[in-house]
Design a protein around this nucleic acid. Structure first.
Length: 856
RNA sequence: GCCGAGAUGGCGAAAUUAGGUAUACGCGGAUUCCUCAAAAGAAUCUGCCCGAGAGGGCGUGCGGGUUCGAGUCCCGCUCUCGGCACCA
């Protein structure tokens, strides 16, 4: 917020100090450039902000006649302080795209809102003895003011905040719809617990064993929590990525694929001596079943306890206690030596009847597959390490041609021919898998199966600033959903120390709030005191934007049908497997409820790169942060936006230390001067204008259009710079400022530039005598006749090296071009009398003369 | 360890993604014009090496290959970045 105040204050001061720049637009055209002050894009900001406010040019139309809807969306900001460089980068990109489509006549929906629930506000409230809403809404206002000044082309009437009861009412509604379908459930399980934030976290929020928010090392706990059953959609989340191919960054698709982690294999039932029920394992290598020489269950699973013989109970207890002491990071280190205990029991290998020992170990995870594995030490390194530690049998069942793992200590997981495997002997891996699956199925001992790495989405949080989970507990009736008509379940007004983390939700302390009536029997009941993960809020916000004030449901189906799915989504890659996966899941779930007629929320995705400084990401501890407000105050909005866009392709990181906003100010000045120099009337006949400049203009329009469509914005700006130079030349040393082609060039330039530098573009538009604002202009269209070249440069090579150049008509014939090329002086010089072996002719651009022998 | 992406001047980056002028555009640097001077603007040059010049040689991480022709395609490396990581 400090930054915004600076920006505003400084801007005002500057515009007072530099009145002449603003006045320059009204001076007579053709005034010598040298007489003007340096263009200061800051000087016109206030003027245009007021005009845009009055005209409201970015309102998305609800008129059905506007039949070219286009939804451009930027990941909505979290209101922590004022905007930073990252926001400026992302919004510069999305805004250019939104403005482009609007100028092309599309009915653009480009909304803004705030992802306003979350921990920072809560922590600030504890420190400041206030309610998180105070901090949140204050920051939202600060950011909104900064966004307005940043000149983003959004429809402000659709603004939403996820912490408004009007919004989270529908987040709770979503929870209830998932609950009805069994997609929201309460269950026990291993959860990630952040000891600092005192709340559970979803798997996706744990980065390298640490809390995504505060960086504390996460510990595992068994707790009863609310989950969304995203695993039901694992297969569809994978399969539906096919149409996103080429529209989403490849690495995001890849990250999602890895995160979902589909494994194809088989389930195999192992009988356990002295136990009625067999235990099922999941394996990706059923072909190695004959090589299973022991059996391992996760030490900290109930199964280990069940299978343990009484004589070994003490050892297991001691071992589990040891395991519990380890952090997740230690536990999951592959370097660590294998540990485990024998459980005093045996399992029977179902295919060869062999008795194999049952062990408990921590290298088997309790929450993947079935929490139990068949160990095939010859062909799995982990099993081999364990077998060698405890002197267990290693039996090779796949001949890979590599040395015996029992001797080398190196397992052979690769392909080979099956041996020591009864009916599988002689088969290759794929055939063996098919065969054994048949056998298992026939005998009822197992079947082909799929397992996923993806876990259900843990959505409960033991914190205050989120949507309360709309469930009540009645002693008589049990767990009940809050009826729709009682939504929203609003937050009680807690503040300061009431919010301090204590391991259970702060809401539990609000006795009046917790105590409620059972919706079924009317008796006393208690509210669920957890709140939902903020990623639930953001998993559906793009739907709400279509009808943000709709009261009959989370969204007006008609409006969603009109705008969705989102045509272009711009945001950081940090959400590759969080927000983007959750949104895809929620979209599919709503689709299955018949509420949406599409299954993927975001048709195209652009990941903007980060803004870094001096090679490192900006951070307080490094002290290398760059303040956006200061940058804007110093160089102006247009220059900063343009700097971000021109620096690199949108998806690349940019290092602020390498960039030069001043250069962009200079460029904007050149454009502004051209607009001021144009000497023809707005009504003139363009066709009579200078053909050379017209060609450049139309070629630029054609190229820039294609470049922007492909989001190659940095190159688009480069083309605008070239057009600027060509126009300058035409004015100074060509047909002159009064030529209508100069006006045409200047107008096209202005419209195209408005994607990146809206203030300067408006000023130019006004200088060009156009009304009312460039936002109402139409994107220029290239005339095909002007795209055709009348002369092209033909390169003449000898032995692949350029030796001459010819100016030729584009339609030149092969024979004619060959003759011209062979007569070129550079060719005879390079040939130096050598005979010609071949002449490759590619009219009209290239001829390659191949001499009979190399030069020597 | 597994999976993926990338490597182009002093720097950020281009090369219409069917192989055909490598370094567009900008930064930085040099020289010049305008000016009493500066600022602002404008012009020219700027990959490396040899050469006064004309011109020539070498150049897209490294080594091979295909081709008349490779930054672009194929094979093998090196390095950098990102994701996953005891997931059976």
């Amino acid at each position: 917020m400090k930054a915004a105040d600076n920006a505003a204050g400084d801007d005002a001061a500057r515009s007072d100090r530099q009145p002449r720049a603003a006045a320059a637009g009204s001076t007579a055209a053709g005034q010598p450039a040298a007489a003007q002050d340096r263009w200061d894009p800051r000087s016109v900001q206030d003027k245009w902000l007021v005009r845009w406010d009055a005209l409201d040019p970015f309102r998305a139309s609800e008129d059905p006649a506007d039949d070219r809807p286009r939804y451009v969306l930027d990941m909505f900001p979290y209101p922590s302080g004022d905007l930073h460089m990252g926001h400026a980068e992302a919004w510069a990109i999305a805004d250019a795209m939104a403005r482009f489509h609007a100028l092309r006549g599309d009915n653009v929906l480009h909304p803004i809102g705030w992802d306003a629930f979350g921990l920072p506000a809560e922590n600030a409230a504890i420190r400041g003895n206030s309610n998180p809403a105070d901090y949140t809404y204050r920051n939202i206002e600060t950011q909104a003011a900064s966004f307005r000044r940043y000149a983003i082309s959004v429809d402000w009437t659709r603004r939403l905040h996820t912490c408004d009861p009007d919004y989270y009412r529908w987040t709770q509604w979503l929870f209830l719809r998932l609950y009805e379908r069994g997609l929201a459930y309460r269950g026990d399980g291993y959860v990630n617990w952040c000891p600092v934030d005192q709340t559970v976290l979803a798997n996706e929020q744990v980065i390298d064993g640490h809390c995504e928010r505060c960086g504390a090392e996460v510990v595992r706990r068994v707790l009863t929590q609310w989950y969304f059953k995203i695993t039901d959609y694992a297969d569809r989340l994978l399969a539906d990525m096919a149409p996103l191919e080429g529209k989403w960054p490849e690495r995001v698709l890849l990250m999602q694929r890895n995160w979902i982690g589909r494994s194809d294999g088989a389930e195999v039932r192992f009988a356990i001596e002295g136990r009625d029920e067999p235990v099922t394992v999941f394996t990706t290598r059923p072909d190695t079943l004959y090589g299973a020489t022991f059996f391992v269950v996760a030490a900290d699973s109930p199964l280990a306890d069940e299978l343990c013989s009484p004589e070994h109970r003490e050892q297991l207890k001691a071992y589990v206690a040891e395991v519990r002491k380890l952090t997740d990071i230690e536990r999951q280190s592959t370097e660590r030596e294998k540990t485990g205990v024998f459980l005093g029991r045996h399992a029977i290998n179902p295919v060869n009847g062999e008795r194999i020992s049952v062990w408990a170990a921590d290298y088997v995870l309790p929450d993947y597959g079935t929490g139990a594995i068949m160990a095939v030490p010859a062909h799995d390194q982990r099993d081999l390490d364990f077998a060698r530690k405890f002197a267990l049998t290693v039996r090779v069942v796949v001949d890979t041609g590599l040395p015996d793992p029992a001797e080398t200590g190196v397992a052979t997981p690769g392909e080979g021919t099956l041996v020591n495997s009864g009916p599988l002997n002689g088969l290759a891996k794929a055939d063996a898998i098919a065969r054994i699956n048949e056998v298992l199925a026939e005998r009822g001992l197992g079947k082909a199966a799929v397992s996923y790495r993806l876990r259900d989405w843990l959505v409960s949080r033991q914190r205050y600033w989120g949507p309360p989970i709309p469930i009540v507990y009645c002693d008589a009736c049990g767990e009940l959903p809050v009826p729709d008509e009682q939504l929203p379940v609003t937050l009680p007004d807690l503040r300061g120390q009431d919010l301090a983390p204590k391991g259970i939700s702060p809401l539990a302390g609000a006795t009046d709030w917790v105590t409620t009536q059972c919706p079924k029997c009317g008796g006393p009941a208690r509210r669920d005191t957890d709140t939902m993960d903020t990623f639930v809020d953001s998993s559906w916000y793009f739907l709400r934007f279509c009808s943000p004030h709709y009261e009959a449901g989370p969204f007006d189906p008609e409006a969603v049908r009109r705008w969705c799915p989102v045509d272009l989504y711009v945001g950081g890659v940090e959400h590759a497997i969080l927000h983007l996966l959750y949104s895809r899941f929620v979209t599919k779930a709503l689709h299955d409820m018949g509420m949406l007629d599409f299954t993927e929320p975001f048709t195209a995705l652009v990941n903007q790169g980060q803004v870094i400084n001096q090679g490192k990401s900006m951070s307080k501890s490094l002290g290398n942060g760059v303040d956006l407000g200061q940058q804007l105050a110093e160089h102006g909005v247009d220059a900063i936006r343009l700097t971000m866009i021109f620096a690199s392709p949108p998806e690349d990181d940019i290092d602020w230390a390498d960039l030069h906003p001043d250069a962009m100010v200079r460029f904007l000045g050149r454009v502004a001067r051209i607009a001021g120099d144009v000497g023809s009337r707005a009504s003139g006949q363009v066709a009579d204008g200078d053909q050379g400049l017209r060609r450049v203009t139309h070629r630029t329009v054609d190229e820039v259009t294609r470049l922007v469509e492909a989001a190659r914005l940095n190159v688009a700006v480069a083309r605008l710079m070239e057009l600027t130079s060509a126009t300058r030349k035409a004015i100074d040393s060509g047909p002159g400022a009064a030529d209508p082609a100069v006006r045409e060039a200047a107008e096209a330039l202005t419209i195209m530039l408005s994607l990146f530098a809206p203030y300067t573009a408006e000023e130019c538009w006004e200088k060009l005598g156009r009304q009312p604002t460039v936002t109402a202009a139409r994107w220029p269209v290239a005339e095909p006749a002007l795209l055709a070249e009348d002369q092209v440069t033909c390169v003449v090579q000898v032995a692949g090296k350029v030796r001459d150049r010819l100016q030729v008509p584009p339609g030149i014939g092969e024979d004619e071009l060959r003759a011209l090329a062979l007569a070129a002086p550079g060719v005879s010089r390079a040939l130096a009398g050598r005979a010609i072996r071949a002449v490759i002719v590619r009219p009209p651009k290239l001829v390659n003369v191949v001499p009979a022998e190399p030069a020597g």
